[in-house]
Design a protein around this nucleic acid. Structure first.
Length: 562
RNA sequence: GGCUCCAUGGUCAAGCGGUUAAGACACCGCCCUUUCACGGCGGUAACUCGAGUUCAAUUCUCGAUGGAGUCACCA
């Protein structure tokens, strides 16, 4: 037991010459205004981003930028099996699309910022230096247990109904002598470094409950957390010389001076490990913010569950880009589920930029929210209304180029498209027809001859022989320069002449006296012109369509129905 | 199974000992109206259960139930 830890540390890490103190100079205190928060996003480079990732990223971004702090990107690639080529680009690109910008950290070109490197695989010497320190203080030790041996231990533990894991008596390498270690090293046996935990496994008391020491940690979202202390000799450095998440998190967030660690609630159970590590390192804890998970209903089981990368491709960020949701819409939606008072704020400040909203961790929900497409769509309508038609045009054009080249030609005539997009949006009661790109294209398709087709049935109230009559009379009296009122008066005249009620109410009261009402007559025109029985104002559409196209469609339809 | 988190209508949620238990989305009806959308008005619909504390519990405590998460040399 009187082991010379210093000697052991040298034996294990002869190549590590840096000392922990050296990092004080390399990572000086950040010069930031009072109350500034430093946050980070630490994705693993699988390249797959879903709504849940964006959800957390927004929280990070707001917390930092709202306080005049720093938001940085750290690539957590301590697991080489996860790496996907080009993933960093994908991550940066998709976050950028949704308006999330980093002040420092990993980037596509050179790293930005003085607290790097920001890619964990490039930080191996740093971690090793701190592991060495821990070993030299007797707070960590090499473990030569093989996978098989660990498996056997687990089986035994399960048989005896003990908590599985490497701790206490099961941590056989924990108290090895320096000679034993030397021997194993000489034999070329691979090893990991484990934390030598001071914790004790809880014991079952007389009352049938388990008792043990607990740790209390303040969480900015959840209040005070009270959990059992860690007692596992958790691996901190893998065979490869790369740390596990736990150790990398502690070292990086300390050196990089993260003030607020925003991460998903799935990290809650490992929090006691982090607490012990911070203690052993002699460092202060950051403020933890454990966010609720975004959930969805599993199709198979019908139950709520956390979003999964594998099972829910429709929740990947690319899905929303492909559908053509505007980034602002997704942002506002996420904000409404991120902070419960956002909706209220938006109602009171309908035109304010989103960034004016003061985001707080206290207003974050701590139970998992179900993703709600209806809500997204509803919010999207309002968001798009706030975007000028010209900007909307640019957005849709860019979308078509990337995701729907078959529609790219629709954007050739900018003036035409802008008018279409702006249709009915400037009235005192603006229309809210536009939701997302694919829906918009579908909604406005009749404006384009190559997409135009007759989709709906003619109204039953109008006998077949009346169809060409209505359209002929319509064309005879049609004057493209008529204003809306004059134009509709002419329709009323036709309606009356053919024996339909000019006022729908008259028809409803006396259905026997009329064939139908003005609405039915209008529907015939609507179908001839738009191919649909529902559409925005016909007169306004005609103004955009132009006289030539209007007349051509009416005539063609009339001919087909003679 | 151990541990952890969570629990108000279909969904998201206000509430923080005394309320007719907000609001938004969705749904339904009515109004407006040439269709639809918008807008307006109204409606259906909730405190998981059981003990305790209290004059009084949705709110505090405990237990049960349910849901979720986690138990790796993955993050």
């Amino acid at each position: 037991m009187n082991m010379d830890y210093q000697k052991l540390a040298e034996m294990l890490f002869p190549q590590v010459t840096l000392k922990p103190e050296d990092f004080d100079k390399m990572y000086p205190p950040r010069e930031l205004p009072e109350g500034a928060k430093v946050t980070r996003l630490g994705p693993s480079p699988t390249g797959f981003m879903h709504l849940g990732n964006l959800f957390g990223a927004f929280a990070d971004e707001r917390l930092a930028h709202q306080s005049g702090g720093v938001f940085y990107l750290r690539i957590e690639d301590t697991d080489d099996k996860r790496y996907v080529e080009g993933a960093v680009e994908t991550i940066i690109n998709s976050l950028d699309f949704f308006g999330i910008r980093f002040d420092e950290g990993a980037s596509m070109k050179a790293e930005k910022g003085g607290y790097g490197p920001y890619v964990q695989s490039h930080r191996a010497p740093i971690y090793q230096c701190f592991v060495k320190k821990l070993v030299s203080e007797g707070k960590a030790y090499p473990c030569f247990l093989t996978e098989e041996e660990i498996g056997e231990i687990r089986e035994k533990q399960e048989e005896e109904k003990k908590t599985p894991g490497i701790y206490g008596e099961y941590a056989v390498c924990r108290d090895w002598t320096i000679e034993q270690v030397q021997e194993a090293l000489d034999a070329g046996k691979p090893y990991v470094i484990r934390l030598k935990s001071d914790g004790q496994p809880p014991v079952e008391g007389e009352d049938g409950k388990t008792h043990g020491r607990r740790v209390r940690v303040k969480d900015a979202i959840r209040g005070t957390l009270d959990m059992p202390e860690n007692f596992m000799d958790t691996v901190i450095l893998k065979q490869t010389g790369i740390p596990t998440y736990h150790f990398a998190h502690v070292v990086d967030d300390h050196l990089m001076q993260t003030t607020h660690v925003v991460r998903g609630a799935e990290w809650l159970p490992s929090l006691p490990i982090h607490v012990e590590l911070f203690e052993k390192m002699g460092w202060d804890l950051p403020i933890y913010c454990h966010t609720a998970q975004l959930m969805k209903i599993d199709e198979e089981t019908g139950k709520k569950r956390k979003l999964s990368k594998r099972k829910d491709p429709e929740l990947s960020l690319t899905y929303y880009r492909d559908q053509g949701y505007h980034p602002e819409a997704v942002r506002e939606y996420l904000l409404t589920i991120l902070n419960s008072n956002f909706e209220e704020w938006r109602l009171a400040n309908p035109d304010a930029p989103v960034d004016d909203f003061e985001f707080t961790t206290e207003k974050m929900s701590n139970s998992g929210a179900l993703f709600d497409l209806n809500k997204l769509n509803d919010i999207s309508k309002d968001v798009l209304l706030r975007i000028p038609a010209e900007d909307l045009y640019e957005f849709l054009k860019g979308w078509a180029e990337d995701f729907a080249p078959e529609y790219a030609h629709l954007f050739e005539d900018k003036d035409y498209m802008v008018k279409i997009l702006d249709l009915g949006r400037n009235d005192r009661k603006p229309r809210k027809d536009l939701v997302y790109a694919r829906q918009i294209i579908q909604f406005i398709s009749y404006f384009f001859d190559d997409l135009f087709q007759i989709e709906d049935e003619l109204p039953q109230e109008v006998p077949a022989e009346d169809v060409p009559k209505i359209l002929d009379m319509y064309m005879e009296t049609y004057d493209h320069s008529d204003d809306n009122g004059t134009w509709f008066d002419k329709i009323r005249a036709i309606t009356d002449q053919l024996g339909y009620a000019v006022k729908p109410k008259d028809y409803k009261k006396h259905p026997d006296e009329y064939k139908g009402h003005v609405g039915h007559v209008s529907t015939v025109i609507r179908i001839a012109l738009m191919g649909r029985s529902v559409s925005p104002d016909v007169w306004a559409i005609q103004q955009i369509l132009g006289e030539e196209r209007t007349r051509a469609r009416i005539r063609k339809f009339a001919e087909e129905h003679r």
